[in-house]
Design a binder for these strands. Structure first.
Lengths: 218, 218
DNA sequence: CGGGCGATTGATTGCCTTCAAACGTGGTGG
DNA sequence: CCACCACGTTTGAAGGCAATCAATCGCCCG
């Protein structure tokens, strides 16, 4: 199930594209362990092998904003400048491949195709950040949660059953809500038979169309 | 390489960095004219010579989200994929330099330094998008408006007087508020003597420290 | 002078946050 | 094996803040 060899090369490798495959080392991180910190020099780039990772930033008043969740196969921590612009933490115990950033720099400076693929990776991140802005902008709590579930389920694509690795607090800080509001929204989705919640972390997608309808609602 | 006079070259040139200076043509756009549309093939990249530009996207329910304001000197409309991910409109009458995107592609495929500078440009956009997410996330109306004024004034850096090119509706759609709330927030800032509003578009920054204090407030 | 658009101000509603308490579950030690 | 505690989650009640609805004002332009 999760020990798939198709998207994950046998070796400890980060594949950013056909012309950009870099060898690194595998590391284990415990739950809530910090993988790298904001402002730290960006010495490595990372790929999730198993487990889940969150990237976060803190606003001036100390509140936590989760920028993204990274699931197996995802590359994260790739910076353009010299320092990390956010903190990364393990949501649960996870295996991470680390590649020296200098290898990426070297590849990009020797091969324009590699540079191009790095650019495309950054462009995808930019697009995701803008999509997230749209969700936060003018959507209510229920719509945000519905949108989150749909996207997250699509990324895993394991049928109707989704195992959430993150807590309500993580979801809340991602969607800019409170844990209470997230909980209420999920309960409401269950009441409407859009989802089922056998346990708090286990979501069964009952009706995608109902979720999509709720997501689009003003 | 380029005949660039500080920020506004005499020629119709887009300078992205020392190794990436591209010649194009100058165009005029009227107020509210569309410069390019979402989903359209990205044939050109753009730089503001004079005037102001907004880039926008529409959410599923038809609401308008302004992603960024572009002022003289700013480069915009640079896509990684083949199509524009947003629409660009002239806020007021403006002069725009357009450069064929194929020139950028060619430069990046021939010179790794050019590719690198393109990457850095995209990285800056990503950082700005993330910063914007933080502002929208857990800030109240007054704080958002204060943050907007501070940043915008810093970009123009003409002393205390700032001439806003955009309407209240534009500010509202940028900050994910309503025009009424933006108006109230500005009135409140004036009441507190943080700013003065001789006319609705003319802002005098009276007390930066007061604004910064308000911006940081929970 | 009149029309139209943008901006301001006011009153009310609704949603999310906050504060508070109870619930369930997993882990630990008796 | 069970009691107990800690933590995450759910549920409830009250309040606050921005959206909405609505009206007025000011200004630019014809």
């Amino acid at each position: 199930m999760s020990a798939n060899q198709d998207s994950t090369p046998a070796g400890d490798v980060i594949d950013i594209g056909p012309a950009l495959s870099l060898r690194g080392t595998r590391m284990h991180f415990d739950r809530n362990a910090e993988i790298f910190g904001e402002e730290e020099p960006a010495e490595y780039i990372y790929r999730v092998v198993s487990g889940a990772v969150r990237t976060i930033r803190f606003s001036a008043d100390g509140r936590r904003q989760i920028l993204a969740f990274h699931m197996p196969g995802d590359v994260f921590g790739v910076e353009i400048g010299g320092a990390h612009s956010c903190t990364a933490e393990a949501i649960n115990a996870c295996e991470i491949v680390m590649v020296r950033r200098s290898l990426l720099e070297k590849a990009a400076s020797e091969d324009v195709r590699a540079a191009r693929q790095w650019l495309e990776l950054t462009g995808q991140d930019l697009r995701k950040a803008q999509d997230h802005t749209l969700i936060l902008g003018h959507k209510g709590a229920g719509e945000r949660v519905a949108a989150f579930l749909l996207r997250f389920a699509d990324r895993l694509a394991r049928g109707a059953d989704v195992e959430l690795p993150m807590s309500r607090a993580d979801i809340a800080d991602y969607l800019c809500l409170t844990i209470e509001t997230v909980s209420r929204a999920l309960t409401e989705l269950e009441r409407r038979c859009a989802i089922a919640l056998p346990t708090s972390r286990h979501v069964v997608m009952r009706s995608r169309s109902a979720l999509m309808q709720l997501e689009a609602a003003a």
